[in-house]
Write a protein that binds this DNA or RNA. Structure first.
Lengths: 160, 160
DNA sequence: GCCATTTACTTGATATATGAATTAATGTAG
DNA sequence: CTACATTAATTCATATATCAAGTAAATGGC
């Protein structure tokens, strides 16, 4: 549903309207909010020297269990698309939070796993991350949060 | 409203639940959606060699009119917080899309303006950007878009 | 079996992001 | 008027993002 540019304004209205369409305003609001929420929710990672992306890779690897995951499958599960997945895992490997080994049957794939240390870091971060997410979402009641999630799901559904 | 960790699961449920709380899931959904929407809506800028941030600076400068704006005030109005505002304006100046001059009464401030070329570029981008935003939001009906915007506003209100 | 194609990464070049430290101008207290 | 604090902007070092190109292994057609 393409919304129309908003109605004309008096000629002496100096500053032009911020956004010509509702869709533009919605996109801006979404990006603005996501930026704030990201900062609020990822701030607690700095204490352990992790970036948001590094943290998400660790979570994905934990979810994959002892079998680990091929490098590019991590990329597919990331919250934000990242072409730099190799270097991201490089960093985690340097920090001893993840390990890699080349597959035996298909020697193209590199299987990534979370280390014991990585699991400990995630465990230490669990409570702070949960608290931070709660704080980030504190503007909405639970029912509103659900409604928001449903709307976001629909939005994503149309884009994938 | 701090929501509780979700209800326990059977012991044989191998993969741990993706998110322990509703707030965490909402944060993830928001970031995921924002990333998709950003890509969908900013894709059209590449044709003119602009990044999303550069484009937003130009919009802010256009809104400021002929008086221009001090550098750091641009940063405050940006959609996503950016400490690298100086370099962002550097880039726009190199491209002849913005100009700068040191203030006369307070010689600490640098006033930034959009150039005629910058205005032309924004004008050329208007239609594609509106179309892209429409496409990015096509998953929601207008009434749902309004509801989403209202929820996002509340979320931001609690974080600022 | 051989060759083109696809797949799974990896690397390189370039750009951008980020926080801390720096410079310069202004404001303020004594 | 001097000393100290504040403000506006810039610079630096380091980390990360991004796209394109490259490598190596597997796959499919004939």
């Amino acid at each position: 549903m393409p919304d129309r540019p908003s109605s004309p304004r008096p000629a002496d209205f100096r500053q032009r309207a911020a956004y010509a369409t509702k869709a533009e305003a919605a996109v801006a609001g979404l990006l603005r909010t996501a930026d704030l929420v990201r900062r609020a929710s990822e701030g607690c990672l700095g204490a352990h020297g992790l970036s948001g992306q590094q943290y998400h890779v660790l979570r994905i690897l934990r979810g994959a269990g002892t079998e680990g995951l091929p490098t590019l499958e991590i990329a597919e599960r990331m919250i934000e698309r990242t072409p730099g997945i190799t270097r991201l895992v490089d960093t985690l490997e340097r920090k001893k939070l993840a390990s890699r080994e080349r597959g035996t049957e298909d020697r193209r794939v590199v299987r990534c796993r979370i280390t014991r240390t990585g699991l400990l870091v995630l465990a230490a971060l669990e409570a702070p991350v949960v608290r931070a997410a709660g704080r980030a979402m504190r503007g909405l009641r639970p029912s509103e949060t659900l409604r928001l999630m449903a709307l976001l799901d629909r939005l994503r559904g149309a884009l994938e």
